[in-house]
C-alpha cells in the first residue's frame, strides 16, 4: 500500500497533489494506493480525488486541522500511517510539507527523502532521484529503515495530467484523535505585503539578473540591457535579499511567476525555486559562465561566457538597429 497525503487549502486541492498521485502510480507498479485528505471540513474533495485510479480515498476530518499547524498535521499523519501501514508515504514538496513532514518523520523515526524528481524501479527496490549541491548533481537515494519511507515530490517533476483516472475508489471517513492542547503553534491569517507596484506577469520581455552580477553597481549593466531589449528588469532571490533590487522584482517560488515572450537569465544558476517561477516563458535565454549550470536545462538559447563581456556586446548589437 502507498499512501498519498493530499494538500488542500480552503477546500481547494493544490495541483501538486495530482503530481504526487502520478508519482505514486508509477512507484506502485500496480500495488494499491490510498489518498488521504486532511482538514476541518473537506467538502467534495474526497469525491474529486476518487476520480483517480486508486484503491481508496480516506477523508480525515478534525476541527484541530484548521488552520494548518505542523503539530496537528504530524499528529494526524502519524495516526493515518499507523492504521494504513503503507510501504511509502508520498506528499508534494510544498511549503506546508517542508514544515510538517520532517516532524512526522522524526516522530515515527522513519526516513524522509525530500524534493524527489524521479523514481527508479517500483516497490521495495525503488531508488529516488533528488537534487544535491544546488542542482549541480542528482543523487540516487535508497531509504533505510522503512517501511514506510516518506517521500516528498518536487513540484513539476511529475505530470498531473499523467494521473490514471477511472477508479471506483471508495471514499471512507477516518476518525482522528488530535489533542488540541498539544498544538503549540498559533497561526494568524495569511496576508500579502503591501500591493505590488510592478506586475511582471504583464511584461512581454524580462531580463533577470542573478548573483553572477557580483555587486550592486553592476545592476546598472543589466538595466541597460533590459532597456535595449524593451524588457522589464527582474532578479533571483539573493539579489533581492541583498537589497540590490526590490523584493517585488523577485522571480520564483517565493516571488512572482512569469511567462513572458522572452526571459533572459543573466548569471542565474537555475535553482528549482527560481525555475518554477519562469520555466513557462516562451523563449528562454541563459547567459552563464558555467556550462554545467542547471539553467541551461530549461534554456532555448545558451551562451557560455562572462556576462560582463556578453551583456555589453548584446547592448551594442541591439542599439545598432
Amino acid at each position: 500500500m502507498i499512501l498519498v497525503i493530499a494538500e488542500q487549502r480552503e477546500g481547494k486541492l493544490n495541483r501538486a497533489t495530482w503530481e504526487a498521485v502520478a508519482a505514486a502510480q508509477q512507484l506502485a507498479g500496480g500495488a494499491p494506493i490510498s489518498v488521504a485528505v486532511l482538514g476541518a471540513s473537506t467538502g467534495g474533495l474526497g469525491q474529486e480525488l476518487a476520480a483517480a485510479s486508486v484503491a481508496a480515498v480516506l477523508v480525515a476530518e478534525n476541527a484541530a486541522l484548521e488552520p494548518y499547524t505542523p503539530d496537528a498535521y504530524a499528529a494526524a499523519a502519524s495516526t493515518l500511517i499507523e492504521s494504513v501501514k503503507p510501504a511509502y508515504v508520498l506528499l508534494p514538496h510544498t511549503y506546508q510539507t517542508r514544515d510538517f513532514a520532517p516532524l512526522l518523520a522524526a516522530r515515527i523515526r522513519k526516513p524522509l527523502v525530500t524534493d524527489v524528481t524521479g523514481i527508479n524501479g517500483t516497490g521495495a527496490d525503488a531508488t529516488f532521484t533528488r537534487p544535491m549541491f544546488q542542482g549541480k548533481l542528482a543523487a540516487q537515494v535508497k531509504p533505510q529503515a522503512g517501511p514506510p519511507a516518506i517521500i516528498t515530490v518536487q513540484i513539476g517533476a511529475f505530470r498531473a495530467d499523467a494521473v490514471q483516472k477511472g477508479g471506483a475508489a471508495a471514499v471512507k471517513k477516518v476518525d482522528l484523535q488530535i489533542d488540541p492542547s498539544a498544538i503549540r503553534q498559533k497561526p494568524e491569517a495569511p496576508f500579502r505585503e503591501a500591493k505590488q507596484a510592478v506586475d511582471l506577469g504583464q511584461a512581454e520581455r524580462i531580463v533577470s539578473v542573478g548573483r553572477g552580477i557580483k555587486s550592486q553597481e553592476n545592476i546598472a549593466l543589466a538595466e541597460k540591457l533590459a532597456t535595449a531589449m524593451g524588457a522589464e528588469i527582474a532578479a533571483s532571490r539573493p539579489i533581492c535579499d541583498n537589497g540590490w533590487l526590490p523584493m517585488e522584482r523577485q522571480i520564483g517560488s517565493s516571488g512572482q511567476t512569469v511567462a513572458p515572450k522572452l526571459y533572459v537569465a543573466l548569471g542565474i544558476s537555475g535553482a528549482i525555486q527560481h525555475l518554477v517561477g519562469m520555466k513557462g516563458s516562451r523563449t528562454i535565454v541563459a547567459i552563464n559562465k558555467d556550462a554545467e549550470a542547471p539553467i541551461f536545462e530549461v534554456a532555448d538559447y545558451g551562451i557560455v561566457g562572462d556576462l560582463f563581456e556578453i551583456a555589453p556586446a548584446l547592448i551594442t548589437e541591439l542599439e545598432k538597429s
Binding site: 542542482g135 549541480k136 548533481l137 542528482a138 540516487q140 537515494v141 554545467e292 542547471p294
Partner: peptide, 10 residues
C-alpha cells in the same frame, strides 16, 4: 536514514 547509491551530473 538514507543512502546515496549513485551521484551524477543531471
Amino acid at each position: 536514514s538514507q543512502q546515496v547509491v549513485g551521484l551524477a551530473v543531471p
